[in-house]
Amino acid sequence: KRVNYAVDAASNNYYLISGEGYPLLFNQLRNSILEVNEIGKYDYLVLCLDAEETLIEDRKKEILEYIETNGLELQKAELIIIVQNPCFETWFLGNRKMFKRHPQSPVLNQYINFYDVRKEDPELMPCYQENTRAQFHHAYLREIFAERNLSYTKQRPGNVGEEAFLNELIKRNADTGHISSFMDFIRFVASLN
């Protein structure tokens, strides 16, 4: 069960906080490590961040080097680093049921002609007329949602957190091996049971 304040954790609780994205999350990471150590009730400190234009292993290494360089250490909790490749929205592109069979949006059709995420691994999709891969993946996802008269924003992600939506992502990975960074997250969550 989610708690509103980190100190309110008792048993089977979690506390969620935004690190405000990379590279601002380093300040929050430092404070979180200190707070988790002070409270002493947490088994894990889970850090989720986008790979952006960096390899997953390089992003993890960067986090671990920051912790070591700053003399930080978790006393009781284990650090779990989940890197979204290249971003959070990439995972959601793996839900093939979100696609209409014959999209009407010219923009969405351009995106599909460039890279069809229904067939190809969204994590391997390159950039298309956007500043970064992550920005393109976000734009692609918004077009898919708009085609169904739904909206997606980072603040209001809509139905991407629903069980049926998540099950489609798990099925996609099982069928194809695609969106493997999402499965790192799923395996961690499954290990909590």
Rank of each mutant, 00 (worst) to 15 (best):
T69M: 10
K61Y: 14
W91N: 06
K60R: 14
F99H: 04
F99E: 04
L93N: 00
I80A: 00
K100F: 08
E62N: 07
I82Y: 04
K100I: 09
N95P: 03
V83P: 08
E62T: 14
N70W: 12
L64M: 09
A77W: 01
P86R: 00
F88M: 08
E62P: 14
E89V: 14
F88N: 06
C87E: 10
E68C: 12
N70F: 12
T69R: 14
M98H: 08
E73C: 13
Q75M: 15
V83T: 06
E68W: 11
L64I: 05
R59Q: 09
E73V: 12
M98P: 01
E89K: 01
L74P: 13
L79Y: 00
F92G: 03
I67Q: 05
E62I: 14
L79N: 07
E73I: 03
F88L: 15
G71K: 04
E73K: 10
P86K: 03
L74G: 03
F88D: 12
Y66H: 11
E89I: 09
F88A: 08
I63K: 03
K61N: 15
I63H: 05
N95D: 12
R59N: 09
K97A: 11
E89Q: 10
E62S: 14
R96T: 12
K100T: 11
T69A: 08
R59Y: 00
I80L: 04
R96A: 12
K97H: 14
F92K: 00
T90R: 00
Q75E: 15
K100W: 05
N85C: 06
E89T: 13
F99M: 07
N85Q: 14
N95Y: 00
E68A: 02
K76V: 03
T90L: 02
I80D: 02
W91T: 08
I80C: 02
C87T: 10
P86S: 04
K61C: 04
R96W: 13
T69P: 03
M98V: 12
L64D: 07
I82K: 11
Q75G: 06
G94E: 01
L93F: 10
L64S: 03
Y66I: 00
L93Q: 02
E65F: 04
F88W: 09
E68P: 12
Q84D: 13
I67G: 08
K60I: 05
Q75L: 13
Y66M: 04
L93V: 08
Q84A: 14
L74M: 06
G71D: 08
M98W: 05
P86A: 02
I81G: 04
K60M: 06
E73F: 04
